[in-house]
Nucleic acid binder design. Structure first.
Length: 480
RNA sequence: GCCCCCAUCGUCUAGUGGCCUAGGACGCCGCCCUUUCAAGGCGGUAACGCCGGUUCGAAUCCGGUUGGGGGUACCA
């Protein structure tokens, strides 16, 4: 079997934060390119809309791709290319199309076009087709769409899609100022870069007949087309930067692992088949096929992403977990004084937190009591655990018991001690530990208590018990 | 309006004419474990939009219908 060369491309425009939809397209293209020894994934930044582009968006795209594992050190990666650098090529192509009669100049204003149609929804009527206009100010270049028949797009995902030429207007390929439009620039670049597979979002499907016509007019065989289903929100609308949480960066920021994100994204519209979902990229990559991609839209379910992320976090070994938490423990992101942090203490508590965080940023509220001077104040937790009952007695008795130097300061014996105190007050351990937990950590839920006490140390624990008792005292006299 | 796409549990999907009294995962609900909360274990809830064909047989093929969605710029 001969290996046909595969050159895929990913062509984002830097007009905003990098999108999860873009990430999925990139991943699909990446898999395709990596499946062949000579396969290439071309990154082309479509920066021709100067008004909306910003350099930081371009940076964002490149770093987000790298985060997903798509980076320039990989031999399959090519680029980044910048569309703005190819403006000459675009102009040449436009010129050639004009010379060959495949395109013509038109000086109609939008108002004139609408006036003639009498309906704002009807497109251009071909008024200037045979007026023989030359290039000049106020004249845009339009592509002459063939008169009869259809253009048939052979889509790998959707099959055969037919567009009657009668329903395609003579579209503009270059503005009056000579600058090319997306539909032209995109095709010229794809031709130039010898792209063989165009795998992109479904929103481009209606551009495709126009682009296919352009490929043919340029004397080239069109690429393999594949239009991916759109990713939608809970209202089943295409994800939008304005109303939906779509920035890959925001997920990264929350502590989603790239491997979990990649895994989840690959499953939006595609499935490796069978009953497996959690699967590393290395296994998915060779299994991926565009022809297996679904054609119906997919909801971006953050809950499921979270579940996947939890799976990946739990699969980490203890050291890796500590390592991966590090960025979220950086001084500028953390509520405790920098000098209070202790590597060893964190490493000791981390295994207890590992199964309790779904995203890495959650590590902070889980361990903050160890490094804060005083536990956080959470009124709801406080009133729940300290409400009239044995709370006060528990704290007082614990303070007393913990003072005994003969009591070894270690989780097992601390548990025994609290159990005894609880029993003497007629409380099971579940009830007995609550006031102590709140006094020491500030919260009603948290990591296993006795290990936490052990790590915090006898003195600090007693200090917090004393402080809680004092607060109880104040509350009592205030309400009296 | 016009062009185009789509249609299996709430969600992501498996399924490519008989293996389907439709499988998995997330969610949800029980139970177990348990110092809180997770994790884990066990069990449960829940779907082929509708109507017609084709066929011995249809989730799978065809037509229609309904309902969603995308596009409709001298944006990308």
């Amino acid at each position: 079997m001969t290996e046909t060369p595969i050159r895929t491309r990913f062509a984002p425009s830097p007009t905003g934060m990098f999108h999860v939809g873009g990430a999925r397209s990139a991943l699909f293209n990446w898999a395709l390119a990596r499946q062949r020894p000579d396969g290439r994934f071309v990154l082309r930044v479509e920066d021709t809309d100067a008004a909306r582009n910003k350099p930081e968006w371009t940076e964002g795209i490149i770093s987000a791709l790298a985060w997903l594992g798509i980076h320039e050190e990989d031999p399959h990666f090519e680029g980044p290319y910048f569309q703005s650098a190819y403006a000459d090529k675009h102009r040449e192509a436009a010129e050639a199309l004009f010379k060959e009669g495949r395109a013509y100049y038109c000086d109609c204003t939008r108002e004139q076009v609408q006036e003639r149609r009498g309906n704002p929804h009807l497109g251009y009527d071909g008024f200037c087709r045979d007026r023989g206009l030359e290039a000049g100010p106020g004249r845009a270049l339009r592509f002459r769409v063939p008169d009869g028949g259809p253009t048939v797009v052979d889509d790998r995902i959707r099959g055969r899609v037919e567009f009657e030429h009668a329903s395609i207007e003579d579209f503009v390929i270059a503005r009056a100022d000579g600058s090319p439009l997306f539909v032209l620039a995109n095709v010229v670049d794809d031709v130039e870069m010898e792209i063989t597979h165009v795998v992109r979002g479904e929103e481009h499907l209606s551009n495709t007949p126009k682009q296919q016509l352009l490929w043919q007019a340029l004397g080239r065989t069109p690429p393999v087309w594949a239009h991916l289903p759109v990713i939608v929100n809970e209202k089943r609308q295409k994800l939008s930067k304005r109303r939906d949480k779509v920035a890959l960066e925001s997920y990264q920021e929350e502590g989603y692992l790239p491997e979990a994100m990649v895994n989840y994204l690959m499953l939006l519209g595609w499935s490796p088949g069978g009953d497996r979902e959690i699967m590393p990229w290395s296994e998915m990559e060779p299994l991926f096929a565009v022809s297996d991609v679904n054609s119906s839209s997919a909801f971006f379910d953050e809950q499921k992403l979270r579940a996947f992320n939890g799976e990946y976090i739990r699969a980490l070994n203890a050291d890796e977990f500590v390592e991966r938490c590090r960025p979220w423990l950086a001084p500028e992101r953390v509520p405790w004084p920098e000098e209070n942090f202790d590597e060893d203490v964190f490493a000791a508590i981390a295994p207890l937190a590992q199964s309790r965080v779904a995203v890495l940023s959650e590590i902070v509220p889980n361990v903050d009591f160890l490094f804060l001077d005083e536990p956080v104040e959470d009124e709801k937790s406080w009133s729940k655990a300290m409400k009239p009952g044995a709370g006060r007695e528990m704290l007082a008795a614990a303070l007393e018991r913990f003072a005994d130097p003969a009591l070894p300061w270690e989780a097992g014996t601390l548990k025994g001690a609290l159990e005894e105190i609880g029993a003497s007050l007629g409380l099971k351990l579940g009830k007995a530990q609550a006031p102590v937990r709140v006094a020491v950590t500030g919260r009603t839920v948290g990591l296993p208590l006795f290990e936490s006490l052990e790590l915090l140390g006898r003195e600090r624990v007693r200090e917090r018990l004393r402080a809680a008792l004092a607060k109880l005292e104040r509350d009592a006299s205030a309400s009296a």
